[in-house]
Design a protein around this nucleic acid. Structure first.
Length: 802
RNA sequence: GCCGAGGUGGUGAAACUGGCAGACACGCCAGCCUUAGGAGCUGGUGCCCGUAAGGGUGUGUGGGUUCAAAUCCCACCCUCGGCACCA
């Protein structure tokens, strides 16, 4: 019979599902949730999904064979803007479109032949799921961690919705690529900033890629310094600034406030000049991108002065849009001698520049931003700048005008979306009582079915159009009230889905304590780098928030994290329909079978790296599987000599040991090469038909994690076993046998390879020397000279120095 | 600008704590088989010299440590990624 993957793969996929072979039982022992990011439902499965799910599956199968109770769950990230946009584009509704995708993806997921636990599927757009997303919102609201506030937000004019900072890349919408505008709107937010410190500090204990940790640290962007108050001349109030260089305060010759802060001052009664008002409104009309791209700094004198609390001298206050409204206090003390941006501003508007830190070097025409010794700073002269930071802040603190302060680049997470396809925010607005939470017993707040769900300009959610749905009684006073019409950001849905896998049908709680204790936190999470500062940060925040509220008992969701690479098109560019370089996994499966596709991904190389799709590679592993089939299918257990039996045992032992170690270390590529070596040596040295049944079984077991279908077929149909190969234990290997094998000892002369010797392990130095010195090769290289020195490394090499 | 990761054949890559560089494949070349092959099998394949045996050379560049360096140290070049008018 010929190897026919299409036929045997479908057969076993059905059989496995029928037998519920991969459903995880809630044991209390060696439980292991193997988490791979669930797919987003805007389309079908692509090569990237296949890559992730195949390599994770290899690892999962290996763990199962080593006695772990593995849960390999799968679900669907089904809500959100991209799914809604795709539905609009295809003239469908988000619900129909998503359902259709889920059903097709389910078929595709089965075709991988992965050991998914289909009894635990979650769908974030299912009311039974988003009920708990809404519950989490209410929990955080009760605790003051969810709040509503008016701020400047990122508005995508194309998608007609607010975006979180994490969803803005280079000033553009993460999803559609349009330039994002700034608008001032009232939005619901999560107080992620109150966890900023632990989100940085707890990274230390995690087994995560260093790159991901650093990306998160950079994203949170902690800086330490001081908040300092500069009293306004002849007035009650003061301008507060944040600085990381309080040591340079004696050189602060003016203040600059952001247009955002200046606007707030006007709102509370400041009578600004016409020039200032115009400057502010021009600046605020600019997009974030425009403001960043301007190299030339602009500003305008505010019309009044502040007092430098250290020098007690009057300094002017300016409004300038190089100062960001959303960072620190929205105002800064300008030290033109020691900050390049302030220097440029001072040069342009001829403001005074005063040097206060002395150090060697030429700083003509630019600011000196390095550390040094203080000058022109009264009692602090001669003090190193690092020390002066402490002392000056302390001095200011004593005056009641300063304090040590940390500030963060991270902003609170804006979770309101003015779009249809999401979980409604469970809040009710009453004209008498203000915002009131939906009572928990009324959850879920179901998303109403709308015929017209398209987004509109102006910041109103489509849900506002369903009057029947919007109108409701106030849960507090019973008077007329309205539902909140914005929906929850999809990233909230996906920030807790892994918890739900442990207890997907629980109607009483998010997750029962019993299940949580058995499965969480997640020991290993495999996913894409694009989530470094989005999903992974959000999931950590939600975990920490729920942990602080006593809902869950662990402070970190994912103990180890591995990022997988991206599968590019054959041209080395990201696959996309517009580039016409998309390779469809289904086509490859039809052609070569799932086992070949899986093995191809394992064999590519380290799975953290990106790869261009190369159709030749898959031909290689397909050829390999054909050879496996041909050798093992004709299994007939002929007589073999002692020597042959030993050679077979050595080859198998070596594979069991090496391949096992490779999988354990996630080195799937060398694992495959180990299997290829095994088959090569069996073919070359022994030929077909000389494997015992025991030999054959061991071989199938080590291939099984990589190619589950072909091994199952051979295991059951050819060897006649009645249970699955995937329920077997990982085979034992004979360490002593491996230790007795001849080793290749390297003979060098002056560090250059001249000969090799096949010797028994443990051979003595003298024996090696004698063998080496009679070698023709060695003699020729010695050129008649006397060896000065011998370097001998046991079982490795002899280096003769002349 | 700051921070991080990485540079090994024509290609993907391998090389455990410094110890045979290029395992395992892809591709290519030659041969066998075949009416045919985007099938199969056998052999070869870093580069240079040589029919060969063999010799030289070789892991981004330059230097260093060592009996011995892809691996350790110093300087530099290049590629990719994160942050960036962040005070």
């Amino acid at each position: 019979m010929k190897y026919n993957p299409q036929k045997i793969e479908k057969k076993w996929q059905k059989q496995w599902e029928k037998e519920k072979l991969y459903e995880a039982k809630d044991f209390g022992h060696k439980n292991y949730m193997l988490l791979a990011e669930f797919p987003y439902t805007s389309g079908n499965l692509h090569m990237g999904h296949w890559f992730t799910y195949s390599i994770a599956d290899i690892y999962g199968r290996y763990l199962r064979m080593n006695g772990y109770n593995v849960m390999y769950p799968i679900g669907f990230d089904a809500f959100g803007l991209p799914a809604e946009n795709a539905a609009i584009k295809h003239g469908s509704t988000p619900e129909k479109w998503t359902k259709k995708n889920i059903s097709n993806m389910t078929k595709q997921l089965h075709s991988i032949g992965a050991g998914f636990d289909w009894s635990r599927v979650v769908d974030t757009s299912d009311p039974e799921y988003y009920k708990w997303t809404q519950w989490i919102f209410l929990k955080l609201y009760e605790a003051g961690l969810a709040y509503r506030a008016k701020t400047f937000v990122n508005w995508c004019p194309h998608d007609k919705t607010v975006l979180a900072n994490e969803q803005v890349i280079d000033g553009k919408c993460d999803r559609c690529g349009n330039i994002v505008e700034q608008r001032e709107l009232s939005q619901w937010m999560f107080k992620i900033t109150s966890f900023a410190d632990v989100l940085i500090d707890d990274l230390e204990g995690l087994d995560w890629p260093e790159t991901t940790k650093i990306a998160q640290k950079n994203w949170i962007g902690r800086s330490e310094g001081a908040k300092i108050k500069f009293p306004v001349k002849d007035q009650e109030h003061a301008v507060e600034v944040f600085t990381t260089r309080p040591d340079t305060i004696f050189g602060a010759t003016f203040l600059v406030v952001s247009p955002e802060l200046a606007k707030k001052w006007i709102e509370i009664g400041w009578k600004a000049s016409q020039e200032v008002i115009e400057y502010i409104s021009t600046s605020l009309r600019k997009t974030e991108l425009q403001r960043q791209e301007e190299s030339d700094k602009t500003g305008v004198f505010a019309g009044f002065n502040a007092v430098n609390p250290m020098t007690e001298k009057e300094i002017p206050i300016w409004v300038g849009d190089y100062v960001l409204g959303g960072y620190g206090t929205g105002a800064l003390m300008a030290v033109p001698a020691h900050d390049q941006r302030d220097f440029e501003f001072a040069k342009k508007y001829t403001l005074p520049i005063k040097e206060v830190v002395l150090n060697e070097g030429d700083f003509i025409g630019k600011a000196n931003e390095s550390e040094g010794v203080l000058i022109n700073s009264d009692g602090f002269d001669g003090m190193p700048s690092v020390e002066a930071r402490e002392k000056i802040t302390q001095a200011l603190k004593d005056k009641g005008l300063g304090e040590f302060h940390k500030t963060y680049r991270l902003h609170d997470w804006i979770l309101s979306r003015q779009r249809y396809w999401g979980a409604p925010i469970p809040m009710i607005q009453c004209s008498e009582c203000g915002y009131q939470p939906v009572p928990v017993e009324d959850l879920p707040v179901k998303l109403p079915k709308l015929t017209d769900f398209l987004p509109v300009e102006g910041g109103k959610s489509p849900l506002a159009r369903s009057e029947k749905w919007v109108k409701i009684k106030c849960p507090k006073c019973g008077g007329p009230a309205e539902r909140e019409t914005d929906t929850i950001d999809t990233f909230v849905d996906s920030s807790w889905y892994f918890m739900r896998y442990t207890d997907p049908k629980n109607e009483q709680e998010l997750v029962s304590k019993e299940k949580m204790d058995k499965w969480l936190p997640v020991p290993l999470y495999i996913g894409g780098r694009e989530h470094n500062t989005m999903h992974l940060l959000y999931a950590r925040f939600i975990t920490k928030a729920l942990n602080s509220l006593g809902v869950i008992e662990f402070p970190e969701p994912f103990l180890s994290r591995r990022n997988h690479g991206v599968i590019m098109g054959p041209d080395g560019k990201r696959m996309s329909k517009s580039k016409g370089n998309v390779i469809d996994p289904d086509t490859e499966v039809d052609k070569y079978g799932a086992d070949s596709v899986r093995m191809n991904f394992a064999f590519l190389g380290p799975f953290e790296q990106d790869y261009a799709w190369n159709s030749n590679n898959i031909g290689g592993v397909n050829r390999f599987l054909n050879r496996v089939w041909n050798i093992l299918e004709r299994f007939n257990d002929k007589q073999r000599t002692v020597k042959e039996a030993r050679e077979i045992d050595v080859a198998i032992s070596r594979a069991v040991k090496d391949v096992g170690n490779d999988i354990k270390q996630h080195k799937f590529n060398t694992g495959v090469s180990g299997l290829m070596k095994l088959v090569n040596s069996l073919e070359a040295e022994v030929g077909e038909g000389k494997l015992s049944k025991e030999n054959t079984e061991k071989i199938l077991k080590v291939i099984a994690p990589f190619a589950p279908h072909i091994t199952e077929e051979l295991w059951q149909e050819v060897l006649g076993n009645s249970d699955s190969v995937h329920l077997q234990s990982w085979p034992e290997y004979d360490e002593i046998l491996l230790d007795q094998e001849l080793i290749t000892l390297v003979i060098q002369v002056n560090g250059k390879l001249r000969d090799t010797l096949q010797v028994k392990p443990g051979i003595s130095e003298d024996e090696v020397k004698n063998l080496a010195l009679v070698s023709d090769q060695v003699q020729r290289s010695l050129e008649g000279k006397e060896p000065k020195k011998f370097i001998y490394i046991q079982n490795k090499l002899l280096n003769i120095v002349i």
